[in-house]
Computed example of a mutant assay.
Amino acid sequence: MPSRSDDPVAAALEQAATLIAHDVRALAAANPVVLIDGGSGAGKSSLAARLVRRWPVSGHVQLIALDSIYPGWDGLDEGAERALEWILRPHGRGYLGTWRRWDWEAQAEAESHAVDPALGVIIEGSGILRPATARLADVRVWVESAEPVRKARALARDGDTYRPHWDRWAAQERRHIERDDPRALATRIVPVP
Rank of each mutant, 00 (worst) to 15 (best):
D6S: 12
D7K: 03
D7N: 12
D7P: 10
D7R: 07
P8E: 05
A10D: 09
A10F: 12
A11S: 14
A12Q: 00
E14F: 02
Q15H: 12
Q15F: 10
A16F: 09
A17N: 04
A17L: 05
L19Q: 13
L19R: 10
L19D: 14
I20N: 07
A21V: 11
A21G: 09
A21N: 03
H22L: 15
D23I: 10
D23N: 11
V24L: 08
R25C: 11
A26F: 09
L27R: 06
A29V: 14
A29Y: 14
A30L: 10
A30I: 10
N31W: 06
P32N: 08
V33C: 07
V33I: 12
V33E: 08
V34N: 05
V34Q: 04
V34K: 02
L35F: 08
L35Y: 04
L35M: 08
I36N: 02
I36Q: 06
I36P: 11
D37H: 00
D37G: 09
G38P: 13
G38W: 06
G39Y: 03
G39L: 00
G39Q: 09
G39H: 03
S40D: 04
S40Y: 09
S40R: 05
S40M: 05
S40I: 02
A42V: 05
A42P: 06
K44M: 09
K44H: 02
K44Y: 07
K44V: 05
A48E: 01
A48S: 07
A48L: 07
A48V: 01
A48N: 01
R50S: 04
L51T: 09
V52W: 06
V52Q: 00
R53Y: 10
R53S: 14
R53N: 12
R54T: 08
P56Y: 03
P56A: 03
V57T: 03
S58P: 15
S58M: 14
V61Y: 05
V61G: 12
Q62V: 03
Q62L: 03
Q62W: 05
Q62P: 11
L63R: 05
I64W: 06
D67K: 05
S68L: 11
S68A: 13
S68D: 13
S68Y: 04
I69T: 01
I69N: 06
Y70L: 08
P71W: 07
G75W: 06
G75E: 01
L76P: 02
D77G: 12
E78L: 12
E78K: 12
G79C: 03
A80H: 00
E81F: 10
E81T: 13
R82K: 11
R82H: 07
L84S: 05
L84G: 10
E85S: 15
E85P: 14
E85L: 15
W86I: 10
W86M: 15
W86G: 07
W86T: 14
I87G: 05
I87E: 00
I87V: 13
L88D: 08
R89V: 07
P90M: 04
R93M: 13
R93D: 09
G94V: 01
G97I: 01
G97N: 08
G97T: 10
G97L: 02
W99I: 00
R100Q: 14
R101W: 13
R101G: 01
W102E: 00
D103V: 12
E105W: 15
E105N: 15
A106P: 14
A106M: 14
A106Y: 12
Q107K: 14
A108P: 03
A108I: 03
A108S: 09
E111R: 11
E111H: 10
S112W: 13
H113F: 14
A114D: 10
V115S: 04
D116M: 03
D116F: 00
A118Q: 13
